[in-house]
Every structure is written in C-alpha cells, then in structure tokens.
Nucleic acid binder design. Structure first.
Lengths: 224, 224
DNA sequence: AAGTATGGAGAGTGAAACTCTCCATAACGG
DNA sequence: CCGTTATGGAGAGTTTCACTCTCCATACTT
C-alpha cells in the first residue's frame, strides 16, 4: 500500500501523512525504491490512533508523540508505559505561573494536599507524581474560587467522594476488556484508546444526564 | 477598582483584560472619565468564569463568547440558555469533513442512529439536535474503528449502558447544588462552572481508578 | 510638576498544525 | 516507450488562536 492508499484508508490527507512521517509520529514504510515505500495495517492503525488521540482526546501532537514513544518503547514495562501515557494525556495547565496571584498559588498547594488526602482516604494506588493529581487539584481550586466553600477557603475533596465508586467499577470493567494474550503494543493501544474514548463517552453521558435533570428543574414550559 | 486591581484580583494581565474587553467577553467598567473606569465584583467573577472555561474546560474564546452570550441574554429561559451553553461546551469535530472517507461518514451516521436508540432506551430528556449526541457518536465510532466490534461493524451503544446510572445520580446531585433563590445569571453560572469542573474532576478520578486497576493487572513487580 | 496608570485601538508575536511547492525518480496507461 | 501522474523528502508558507506590544491623549498620584 502506497501513501495514497494509506490516505484513502484513514481519511487523512497525503500532505498530513507526510507531515506525521517527518515528525516521526508514524514509522516510515518499507522502502522499495528511493522514492517508494510500502505501508501496511500497522500504519493504518497508527494513524487512527493518532487521530483518535488528537480529535477525541484533544491532545497536541507533541503529547501524542510522548504517548507513542511510551507505547513503542519495548524496554518499558507495561504498567510504566501506562503511567507515561496517562500523564501525557492529562491536559496541562499554566506552564509558567508568573502571572498568577500568590493567593492562587497557595490555593493550589492546599488543593494538592487535599488531593493527597483524598487519594489516601480511598486507598487509591496512584503514583505520588502522577499528573492526574494536579488535574483534580485544579478542579478543586476552581470550585473553591466559585464559592463552593467559604470565601478564601478550599472546598473539601469530599465533594468528589461520590465519583470514586462508579469510577472504580468502570475502570475495572474497561481494564478487563483488554485482551490478555495480546502483545504489549496491543495492550497499550487498547488502554490508551479506552482511556480517551471512555472519557469522552462518559462526559457525553454526564451531560445528557445534566440536561435531563436541568429540564426537570428549570423548565418553565414543556418542550415544544 | 481599576484595571490593575482587576488584574491583581484575578491573576490575569492587564493586556489580556483589555483584549477580553475588546472581544466583549467582559463588560466595560462604569466610566468615570474618558480614560477611567470602575470594575467591580461582577468583573472579577466574570474573568474567573472565563479562565475556568478556558483552562479547565479547554474552550476556545469564541465558544466562551457563545456561552457568555447565552448566560447574559435575559430573554432566554434558563433551560434554553443551559442548552446553548452545553452545546458550546462540546468540543467540535471536523468543521468540514471533505477529507474523510465515505465509509467513515456512513459509520458516523450509523453511530448517530445508535445514539438515538441509546437515548430513547434510557428515557433521557435530551434535545434531538443536542451537540452532545454527536459527542457520544464520535466516541462510539472511534471504538468501532479499533476493533471493539466486528470489523466494519459498529459497536453497540450498550457498552455505554453502565455509564448512565452513575451519571444520572451525579447530575441530580450537582443540579441540586444550584442555589434555588439565586438570580438567573447566578444559576447559569453555577451550572456552567459545575459542568466543566465536575467533568474534569470526574475524568481525573476515572484515571486514578484506571491507574489503580492497571497496577493490579499489569504490574510485574510491586511498586518500589 | 514629574511620573505612572488608564482606556482604546492597531499592529505584532509565537506556537501549533497543517498545507504548498519543488524536485528527482517511479509507476501506469495507451 | 513516452507522456502523465504519483511518490518520498524537505523547506517554506499559511491559518488560526490567544495573546502581547506599542502609541497616544488623558487622568490620577505624590
């Protein structure tokens, strides 16, 4: 399969594929001549993975690169690669916080401590430096800034307690979907895709539920 | 409070605030002279809302503008404004699908039909044209492309069944957090912030759970 | 009175993700 | 077998976004 075929199979333009090759997000095809190469199923799969991460997950190509590097690095144990991928998939906040208030920085620190407590309280096995902790801390800080707690106070992480049980159930379910006898790359691909896809699906269903209840709560007149 | 004060209170630079004013994401302050205006708490709140939407929710400023317009339009009933805001908060996919495959387009159509069935089956009160349907359809289509179903087949939306009950419970809970006697703007602000913040929190907790279970499943050696 | 800050508006910046243009070489169609 | 189209590779250009910078006439501050 030549590049036009790969483009046809994935719906991604040739120019973009060339760009991905240059950025080495995509392995070069098997060269058959100086200006000819052969692409196969693994390339199709890889392109789909990239697109899923970018379009569904909203990752930057740089982060996609990090995820793929972890997936491709055979020396990295599956669980570690999973950690790297997870961290790369967490949307990053303020790379430099020079403009933010001092009070804000302190709020964030306290939020991190609150998250630590949360993790311990629920007995979660999460790396101390996992990016996802920051993610939860950011949510907590934002909540606090909007009066979900006394002014200047931090909202307690207990507001998130109710999220744990369903998340655990769902995580166990999705992890078990990963085919056991599959090879390393396939396992990781499954977990990566699963993380992103189920996150979007979960968000979508949550919003549907929100609309459902908002209707019951706020609708003055019945829907037309 | 002058613009420097607003900047200090929010951690957003003066230049950026001016930019927000120009883009009319922020109402002008009360003018006290030709080059002097007074900003108050409503401005602080608004800036925080913008930042929460942008940083936490990952919305573009254009989408933030749409959300704010719905929040500010007093002629719009609360529930309708909620719908507009929800739609603006859904990440958009491919504005023009000229490059995508025909098979892809068909897959997407079938996914939409599948989502319709899903919504009906669960008795969800969701607008027929709600953007969130597309969101779920995209997730379903992505799942199908990665072999969660027979090749070329669409994964059934039943894979998402398990998400409904927790989402409904959580939605009811968050909707009830909205203060009843509050005014329209405040109600909307709460629901908007709640949507974004709880979405992030939920995603974070899901990932923690995923890491927890991935450890149990994939770890060869115990954590150091 | 000197110095800094303000509102307003235009122009400029930097990152991200493509997209376009070239070129020497290959493949394909008649 | 020869003109047309496609290919791999690489540099340059484009678009969008979210700022950020520069000016300026005025106003506040000390």
């Amino acid at each position: 399969m030549k590049i036009a075929g790969l483009s046809g199979a994935t719906g991604v333009s040739v120019a973009t594929l060339k760009y991905y090759l240059r950025e080495s997000l995509l392995h070069p095809g098997a060269a058959t001549a100086v200006n000819q190469a052969d692409y196969d199923d693994s390339h199709v799969r890889r392109v789909r993975l990239i697109r899923a991460l970018v379009e569904l997950g909203g990752l930057s190509l740089a982060d996609v690169g990090t995820v793929l590097a972890a997936v491709d690095d055979d020396t990295l144990p599956v669980h570690d690669a999973f950690g790297v991928a997870q961290d790369a998939m967490v949307p990053h906040r303020r790379p430099a916080a020079d403009s933010s208030t001092e009070a804000d920085a302190e709020l964030h620190d306290r939020a991190m401590a609150e998250v630590d407590r949360f993790v311990r309280r629920h007995g979660l096995d999460v790396r101390p430096d996992a990016a996802v902790r920051t993610m939860l801390a950011d949510a907590l800080a934002a909540l606090s800034r909007f009066g979900w707690a006394e002014p200047g106070q931090l909202a307690g992480a207990e507001v998130f307690d109710g999220l744990v049980a369903p998340a655990m159930a769902e995580a166990e379910f999705s992890i078990d979907l990963v085919p056991e006898p599959a090879d390393r790359g396939e396992q990781l691909e499954y977990t990566v895709v699963g993380t992103v896809v189920f996150e979007v699906a979960n968000a979508a269903v949550r919003r549907m539920a929100l609309e459902h209840h908002s209707h019951r709560r706020f609708a003055r007149t019945r829907r037309r």
